[in-house]
């Protein structure tokens, strides 16, 4: 983040135009966050009234934990969408990292720190490839990541050759399941998410890099003319997305203790992460990103899906519930933002 700040610091020209609308944008962002929090609380209370175990500490802890992996991917996706892009390749990047680090840990006892290094390298390299294809060759992001989706998923098969991760060393399991301190029952993955969220929130809202991202999403030509280096910003955004997807893969393998060739792609993480980002108030048309909203969106999705189980809804309707939730949140959000614009 620091590097990007210093590098883009010459282009102050972009700041004023962003600053003007900052107040309105902040208002809009906060409405979405409040909406999501209120909605989540309403669901919690309503379902909790029917079955008090729904609001038990243990259940809430797992609802949060279950959203961590998806939220990490969705944070990266939020960066990309804010530049008016899209990243479908997050699913195989996540799966590849989970399989590679998991198999190395299982087979040759790779230490956890090494796994972080490998995840970082995988995310950086694959993300950079995406970014270069988008920015240098000016191929539309959806096409680039559709193509790399196929290629990266092939890498998973080539690397794993049909073996799967069944068990991870104790250090990994501790990272995936442990709590920060014995007296502080916050799971480590949740802490990880919180740190990543803070970094993303800060970088998007309070650094020149963040402003460059939003400026590109708003109007790439204007940003370019204003001196924002569109290409390097775009490449960085896909690098961030790749790294966060890879981190999500590592958290996944630590949390579940297993990974197969269908990790990520089989659960359609790419579509889910887009949905979560949009629920959170990020605009698919670019120029608007809401990191806190994304994480709240992931949480809300987890709460809804768990609520369906507590309400004894037949499992075949879970995905319909998810679809309906996306529609309601996003269309309501549209209404609000339009109303906000009008006033």
């Amino acid at each position: 983040m620091k590097a990007s700040m210093t590098e883009t610091s010459g282009f102050k020209t972009v700041a004023p135009s962003v600053k003007d609308s900052r107040a309105t944008r902040r208002a809009r962002r906060e409405t979405r966050e409040i909406t999501l929090i209120v909605a989540a609380v309403v669901v919690l209370l309503a379902v909790g009234a029917i079955n008090h175990r729904f609001v038990s500490f243990e259940n809430i802890r797992f609802m949060v934990l279950n959203s961590v992996v998806l939220s990490l991917v969705a944070l990266g996706q939020t960066w990309v969408i804010a530049t008016k892009g899209i990243d479908l390749s997050v699913a195989p990047i996540m799966g590849l990292t989970a399989v590679v680090t998991g198999l190395l840990a299982q087979g040759s006892g790779l230490p956890l720190i090494g796994a972080f290094g490998i995840a970082l390298v995988i995310g950086l390299v694959l993300g950079t490839i995406n970014g270069l294809l988008v920015a240098r060759l000016t191929i539309p992001p959806i096409i680039v990541t559709l193509g790399t989706y196929s290629i990266y998923s092939g890498l998973i098969f080539i690397y794993s050759n049909g073996t799967q991760v069944d068990q991870v060393p104790a250090a990994y399991a501790a990272f995936g399941n442990g709590r920060i301190a014995p007296w502080l029952p916050i799971p480590i993955p949740v802490l990880t998410l919180a740190i990543v969220l803070f970094l993303c929130w800060f970088a998007l809202g309070y650094t020149l890099f963040g402003r460059a991202v939003l400026a590109i999403g708003n109007n790439a030509v204007a940003a370019y003319n204003a001196g924002v280096s569109v290409i390097s910003t775009q490449v960085r955004v896909y690098m961030i997305s790749g790294v966060l997807a890879a981190l999500a893969g590592l958290v996944f393998v630590c949390y579940t203790g297993s990974a197969t060739v269908t990790t990520g792609t089989g659960d359609h993480v790419e579509l889910q992460s887009i949905a979560v980002a949009l629920i959170g108030g990020t605009a698919i048309a670019g120029g608007r990103g809401n990191m806190i909203g994304t994480v709240l969106g992931g949480l809300f999705l987890s709460v809804i899906l768990t609520a369906l189980v507590f309400l004894h809804v037949p499992p075949i309707w879970y995905s319909a519930g998810e679809g309906a939730m996306i529609l309601v949140t996003v269309t309501l959000g549209m209404r609000q933002s339009r109303a906000g614009k009008a006033s």
């Binding site: 075949i316 679809g323 996003v330």
Partner: peptide
Amino acid sequence: IITRLNTEPLIATLATSFIYGSVGTA
């Protein structure tokens, strides 16, 4: 959904794909 509710096509059809899928399974 796209024209009346002014929803982005990507998000609208993503949501309906989940819903249609459930209906199909049911």
